[in-house]
């Protein structure tokens, strides 16, 4: 059974001056899928990611989310629509506790404005209580509920990444974009993160991620998109990709007889 298409990238291109960082890339992400974008350094993965997350505007092409064009929307607008992300270089709010980090993630789900907050209207208290409960549930989902009231900056790197994922999931988005989620993690932490991501997917979450670590890609991706020199050179399930001649060439160069 084919699931419905959640995110659709159509003929996306981006050039910086004369450099074509991304050229005519198209692909889609379906509901409850885990899709990986891979490619050698300089293949345009980060640029593509930045366009989808609204940091860069594309030169041409479009991004559709649930059938709606979202090209050029700002990150905070995308978040309201249901796309959130994590960062390769951790962007945990070190000036807050873990639970507060996650509560920031719920921003789009809450309503309190500056005046109702300032006058502490009754619904604010109710909302805070509700938010706290839900944030706790998010932390439980990634297995760090016991650290809820710790300052975020004292946690180990891998745990901070889990905080970021809990935070990105807090608003119950439809799609979470992960920018090199395994970067900087030790094998144990990676394994834990893989389990967390798979569990979240089974609960209905969809992920699109950029990753260098092939082991992870093989372990969790349903589909893999391969970029090279800004172009999509292959797409398929992990097994297909490892056999794909263009992919082998891109990763290993032109040498004959190279194999993985």
């Amino acid at each position: 059974m084919k699931k419905s298409v959640l995110l659709e990238i159509e003929q996306l291109s981006k050039s910086f001056g004369g450099v074509h960082a991304v050229q005519n890339v198209s692909f889609c992400v379906r509901d409850q899928e885990i899709v990986a974008i891979i490619g050698p350094n300089g293949a345009g993965k980060t640029t593509l990611f930045n366009i989808v997350t609204g940091i860069l505007p594309p030169t041409s092409g479009s991004v559709l989310f649930k059938g709606m064009p979202v090209t050029g929307k700002k990150p905070y607008q995308l978040a309201a629509l249901g796309i959130t992300r994590t960062f390769q270089n951790l962007q945990v709010f070190t000036n807050m506790t873990v639970i507060e980090n996650v509560m920031v993630g719920m921003h789009t789900r809450l309503k309190t404005g500056i005046f109702s907050a300032g006058f502490r209207l009754p619904q604010v208290f109710k909302e805070e209580k509700q938010a706290l409960k839900q944030a706790m549930a998010c932390l439980e989902q990634v297995g760090i509920a016991h650290l809820a009231f710790e300052k975020a900056d004292i946690l180990p790197y891998g745990t901070q990444r889990l905080v970021e994922i809990a935070r990105a999931a807090a608003s119950q988005p439809s799609l979470i974009l992960l920018d090199e989620p395994m970067a900087g993690l030790n094998p144990q932490e990676s394994k834990k993160l893989v389990d967390v991501l798979l569990a979240m997917r089974n609960n209905g979450m969809t992920f699109l991620f950029v990753e260098h670590d092939m082991e992870t890609v093989m372990a969790i991706a349903d589909r893999v998109i391969v970029l090279d020199y800004g172009k999509k050179i292959a797409e398929g399930c992990p097994e297909e990709i490892t056999q794909h001649p263009d992919v082998i060439k891109a990763y290993l160069g032109e040498e004959e007889g190279a194999s993985c």
């Binding site: 940091i55 905070y76 978040a79 962007q91 709010f93 920031v104 608003s171």
Partner: peptide
């Protein structure tokens, strides 16, 4: 950048 991506205007 993180605040923005979480929906904070």
């Amino acid at each position: 950048i993180a605040a923005n991506s979480l929906g904070v205007n």
